[in-house]
C-alpha cells in the first residue's frame, strides 16, 4: 500500500514539475472548444444547443492527448522495467498510475468546464450537468485509454496509433455522456438513466482497464 501511495505521489509530482505538461490537456480543451464557434458561427442559440456535445468532444480529445505519456515516459527512463519487476501486482500499479493521471489531467478538465460553458452560452443548470457527466465519464476514458497507452508503449509506437486504437472504444462513453447532458437541459426526468450507465462504464473500466493494460505490458516488454 505504501508503495502504491509513493507511486501516486511521484506520478503527480512528475506531472506537475517543469517538463511534465499536466496542464497542456486543459489548454488543448480550451482551444478546441474556442475553435468550434469559428466553424459553426457565433450564433448563441445554436451554440447553446450544441454546447454539451462540443464540451464532451473537447474533453474526449484532450484526455486522449495526454494519455500517450502515461507509460512512455517511464519506459524511456527505464523505471517501467522496475515497476513490472516489483513485488506489487502490475494490475495495481496500472490502476495507481491511471488514478494519478486522472487527478492531474482529468480533474482540471472538469474544473475548466464552467468557464467554457459561459463561452458557449450554457446556463447554470446545463453547465453543472455537463460537469457532473464529465466527472462520471472521464475515469472511463482514462481507463480505456490506458489500455491503448500500454499497447502503444509495448509496440514502441506512440501518438496517433493510440488515438486510432482508443477512439472507437470510447464511443459508448461519448453517447451516454452527451445523452445525459442533453437530458438535463431538455427533460430533467431522463437524466438519471444515462448517468447511471456512465457510472457503470467507469466502474467496468476500473476493473477491465488495469487488467488489460498489465497483460499487454507483460507480453509487450520482454
Amino acid at each position: 500500500m505504501t508503495a502504491l501511495l509513493a507511486l501516486l505521489r511521484r506520478d503527480i509530482q512528475v506531472a506537475l514539475r517543469v517538463g511534465g505538461g499536466a496542464l497542456i490537456g486543459v489548454l488543448f480543451f480550451l482551444i478546441v472548444v474556442v475553435l468550434m464557434p469559428f466553424a459553426v458561427g457565433p450564433d448563441l442559440a445554436l451554440l447553446k444547443k450544441l454546447g454539451p456535445a462540443i464540451l464532451w468532444l473537447g474533453a474526449l480529445l484532450a484526455s486522449l492527448l495526454t494519455l500517450d505519456r502515461l507509460f512512455a515516459a517511464d519506459h524511456d527512463d527505464g523505471s517501467l522495467d522496475l515497476l513490472t519487476m516489483s513485488r506489487t501486482p502490475l494490475e495495481l500499479i496500472c490502476l495507481t498510475k491511471a488514478i494519478a493521471h486522472w487527478l492531474v489531467a482529468g480533474l482540471p478538465l472538469i474544473v475548466a468546464t464552467p468557464i467554457l460553458g459561459l463561452l458557449l452560452n450554457l446556463d447554470g443548470d446545463a453547465t453543472v450537468a455537463v460537469a457532473l457527466t464529465l466527472l462520471a465519464g472521464t475515469p472511463a476514458l482514462t481507463f480505456t485509454g490506458m489500455i491503448g497507452a500500454a499497447l502503444a508503449v509495448a509496440l514502441r509506437r506512440g501518438g496517433l496509433l493510440l488515438a486510432v486504437l482508443v477512439l472507437p472504444l470510447s464511443i459508448p462513453v461519448l453517447i451516454f455522456g452527451v445523452a445525459a447532458s442533453n437530458a438535463a437541459v431538455l427533460e430533467p426526468a431522463g437524466f438519471g438513466a444515462p448517468l447511471s450507465i456512465l457510472c457503470a462504464l467507469s466502474l467496468a473500466g476500473l476493473v477491465i482497464g488495469p487488467l488489460a493494460a498489465a497483460a499487454s505490458l507483460r507480453h509487450g516488454l520482454d
Binding site: G19, L23, P42, L118
Partner: peptide, 28 residues
C-alpha cells in the same frame, strides 16, 4: 450575456490562449 462572440473580445481570447501556449512552451 456574459459572453458574446464579438470580434474584439474574441481576439483577446485568442491572445490569451497564445499567452498560455507560450507559458506551456517555457515550462516544457
Amino acid at each position: 450575456t456574459y459572453w458574446e462572440w464579438d470580434a474584439r473580445l474574441t481576439s483577446v481570447l485568442i491572445l490569451f490562449l497564445m499567452y498560455l501556449g507560450l507559458i506551456a512552451l517555457w515550462r516544457a
